[in-house]
Write a protein that binds this DNA or RNA. Structure first.
Lengths: 340, 340
DNA sequence: CAGATTAATGCAATCGCTTGCATTAATCTC
DNA sequence: GAGATTAATGCAAGCGATTGCATTAATCTG
């Protein structure tokens, strides 16, 4: 049996409560006993039992993350690792742990989350996969359970979230193309039920405005957020009466598809049509031509989500925080000649 | 305050212990009370407090995974996500959770692991980053704490592990090249302190033997497990008196570097030198030419690690299990024409 | 120096659940 | 139908910490 607080107390000739106070750094403890207790603790290699502490404290110092058991394509590989790493680092810095729960089989994400909350396994949650009209969010709000959403949810006002500055990013991409002289710039994206798609599109449109260009419906392609979707969407744009000379695609995979489509149509990237993707997937730099892309800082997304949540857990201030992580346009050949 | 077992007991007119037994599915409970208690539980939306249970049970139903805060390159992105997903799914299936702990700052992996164990936060551990002469493993063994290693550790007999069949994989790659008619096959890999490098090399050598070829030291290149390392190693091989016409590289990144080097030297892949990589990185298919690679099933690695650990936690049988996950050679252009 | 503060520690209840043992009620057995 | 089994439940003591309150010892104060 492992050594408990009682063993330490006995060995040090004090009461367990005294040991507990020493651990907690309680002020009213004499230097002498404190030293003695610390000695004994070290000697016996005592480590407080986290479970017992949690029970007494009503706090687990653990934050929960729910991960889908089947990875959808949207929830792409490197993304997950990097957010987790970000969350992990911020949690570690503040002395927290991360509990990962999976769902699948008969259980959905909502239930998996509830379980974590109802069983009191975690002090707070970070949500990675929020969608429009998410009932998980509604339920957590009702229970007044602390949580932070990565990726701005649809109803956002009274919820803490951390997100990329997607509007700004969409703006930057389209604006760059406009400044290169393009006047017909298309946009290719996934379903507008994804908040990030809406926002990237919004930024794109804003950039058109700012550059005195008009948005044309035939220059908008919506399809699956995959390579094939990008190809199909591009096919559609090519059939436009006045086809664009540049496109912003809301995802790198779609950009790859678009490039393939353009090449198959006998045209060249960027000479005939310039392309800018999104997320700066590792693949982007290796494509032919290398794809320009908006880099998003996924690690920071996770890191700040952790920070915000823990602040919320520890601080008293109840109002919700919103954090925007800036993005960075990485220029490669697909968007045309760059002149540094 | 949340509803506790006492509330349920009171509402159902029984003792808390009875409620507890109902939950545990204890046999000696009359059908009537059982039903009654279950009703009340549902009505009050009672969920047993996991922490309190853990304390009473001495079991957290949680398995720990320690993740480095700075990703080294070896510990590549998609790998992590996939193992975690595998671990998550097996844990979920058996009603377990996964606790993720990070280290960094002043703390090393060893300490982070100890903390998890000493504080009794987890019932068992899965180790992802074992190295030769790992003191974490030694310590866990001494404490008789249940754990499973992903990737065969150096001292392997009395430890449970799950690993790719790296010998077989190295064999398959080299054997394929030999059967294509190559007689001078090189090997490029990272430091031999990585067990998986040793094994892939061992398999490679076995294949040479089996095909009546001799291994030549100048055909072995050891360097950093990165693209640059691959390039440098390849440069060295090109200077060999009798340079190879094919190489097996123990990692895709190195393969990329090798290909680049070959092209820069004015030769073609696979016509002048055929290349096979390892891990089937998503990038591999997009390279020019697309790289043949040995696919490893990372999800399964994680999944089986979880299974083995949980078996160990629940079963009585104390002996260690070893599981080999088969690999698959994915042929693309870099290894020469394939004739299906 | 007696009474009042204050500092340092111990006592015991509590967190929510589990479980061995005791108790009572129900069912056998001859 | 009385004593022996057995089934169903309650009692109370943990699990390993924390913490409000009580207590004792030490230090002030005038």
């Amino acid at each position: 049996m492992a050594v408990t607080i009682k063993d330490v107390a006995k060995a040090a000739g004090v009461d367990p409560s005294t040991v507990s106070r020493v651990i907690a750094g309680h002020p009213r403890i004499s230097g002498k006993t404190k030293e003695k207790v610390l000695m004994v603790m070290a000697e016996l290699e005592y480590h407080p039992n986290a479970i017992a502490r949690s029970l007494a404290n009503r706090s687990t110092r653990t934050i929960g993350v729910v991960m889908p058991s089947e990875m959808e394509q949207v929830f792409v590989n490197p993304f997950f690792t990097e957010v987790m790493r970000g969350i992990g680092v911020s949690a570690f810095k503040r002395g927290y742990y991360v509990l990962l729960s999976t769902w699948g089989g008969g259980e959905d994400e909502y239930k998996a989350t509830q379980r974590l909350v109802d069983e009191k396994r975690v002090d707070g949650l970070i949500l990675l996969t929020s969608r429009v009209g998410d009932k998980t969010i509604e339920s957590l709000k009702k229970k007044r359970f602390p949580f932070v959403v990565v990726g701005k949810p649809a109803k956002m006002e009274d919820v803490s979230w951390v997100d990329n500055d997607n509007v700004e990013a969409g703006y930057a991409a389209a604006d760059y193309l406009a400044r290169q002289g393009h006047t017909k710039i298309g946009f290719i994206g996934g379903a507008f039920s994804y908040v990030f798609i809406c926002e990237r599109f919004k930024g794109y449109k804003k950039a058109l405005d700012a550059n005195g260009l008009v948005f044309r419906k035939e220059h908008l392609g919506v399809d699956e957020l995959l390579e094939d979707g990008g190809r199909r969407a591009m096919e559609k744009l090519l059939q436009a009466s006045d086809r664009p000379t540049a496109v912003v695609t809301a995802d790198d995979l779609m950009a790859f598809g678009a490039v393939r489509c353009i090449k198959e149509a006998g045209m060249r990237v960027p000479e005939d049509i310039a392309v800018i993707g999104f997320n700066d997937t590792p693949l982007a730099r290796y494509m032919d031509p290398p794809i320009s892309s908006v880099e998003i800082f996924v690690f920071d997304l996770g890191y700040h989500a952790g920070e915000v949540l823990i602040d919320q857990l520890e601080g008293s201030d109840g109002h919700k925080k919103h954090i925007m992580i800036p993005t960075r346009l990485v220029l490669r050949q697909s968007s045309g000649i760059t002149h540094l």
